[in-house]
Nucleic acid binder design. Structure first.
Lengths: 163, 163
DNA sequence: TATTGTTATACTCTATAACTATA
DNA sequence: TATAGTTATAGAGTATAACAATA
């Protein structure tokens, strides 16, 4: 009776997906994000903006526009995020003297302290993600991902030239 | 006058991000998705579910539950997607004899033909993503991503054991 | 009792367009 | 005229919970 066992068969991954870097990236990102949310808890809305907080930390006084570009967001989409993290005490917006349209973003002291705690959780997650990799392998992987990033940024900026 | 040039300075990427595979994956996926949408057009809502369509093609008659798991979606979230693609003629649901709760999913003939056209667009995009990579480098990268996928799936299934 | 697919519903995230205040 | 930030709004996309049919 062929067909009866069908429900128990392995899922076939077609070559077009198995061999696609884009597809792997997509599924990996979903899985990485879900696992990250399981690892991290008790930090409010901040964990999902960990990357942004680290960028602010490394670039104190960064403009909102600049920040939005860096994380591929529209400037309007960034506003409620900045708002929420300000309300939770992570960061603050300060006006500038030279150009009063611009507001510069800084971590608060509380933000700095909390971010240090969050760093530990993030490292724990990263260790799980790269379990079984040697340091050199991780460096090589990061280099490869960097090359892909360059390809994509190049393509996106070229195809945005008209805008 | 230090500080005046600040607006033109390069963005500093902190080591915690530069060295994080998770973070790279996240940003890459966003960029890859945006570029994919620019490359592909004229296929309705299908391109964003290209991976799912290829899975159905490779696993004709797959159950909805099975499909949902494979792409990390809740079974309820899959329903409107299946619905839309059915309405656009890409696929169809057929009842089963043995277990009448289950509906099996198949590509239609139209779906097969359109998917063949979409394949070409996807290949074009993939070529851009991996531009500058040699075939062996791509294989190595895919292998690395596969190892990460295994780590994540292992972690997610373990931490879901209670559920 | 458990499972598959479905529905109703609400929540999150995002972009677009219009607005303000500055430049 | 153009730009930085904001607001209002609408559209995706997702999960949760409850339901019907079936096992």
């Amino acid at each position: 009776m062929p067909g009866v066992m069908r429900d128990l068969e392995e899922l076939v991954e077609p070559p077009a997906l198995t061999g696609s870097v884009s597809y792997r990236l997509r599924l990996l990102q979903i899985a990485a994000y879900k696992s990250f949310e399981k690892v991290v808890s008790g930090f409010g809305t901040a964990p999902r903006y960990y990357g942004m907080l680290k960028l602010i930390q490394a670039n104190p006084g960064i403009h909102q526009m600049r920040l939005a570009e860096a994380i591929y967001l529209d400037r309007s989409s960034l506003v409620p995020i900045i708002e929420a993290l300000s309300n939770e005490g992570w960061l603050e917006r300060r006006p500038t003297r030279h150009d009063r349209r611009v507001r510069r973003i800084y971590l608060t002291d509380l933000g700095e302290r909390q971010l240090a705690l969050l760093d530990a959780e993030v490292e724990r997650h990263e260790a799980m993600v790269t379990e079984g990799f040697e340091a050199a392998e991780i460096q090589r992987l990061l280099a490869d991902l960097g090359r892909i990033d360059a390809n994509l940024r190049g393509f996106l900026s070229v195809s945005n030239e008209g805008a």
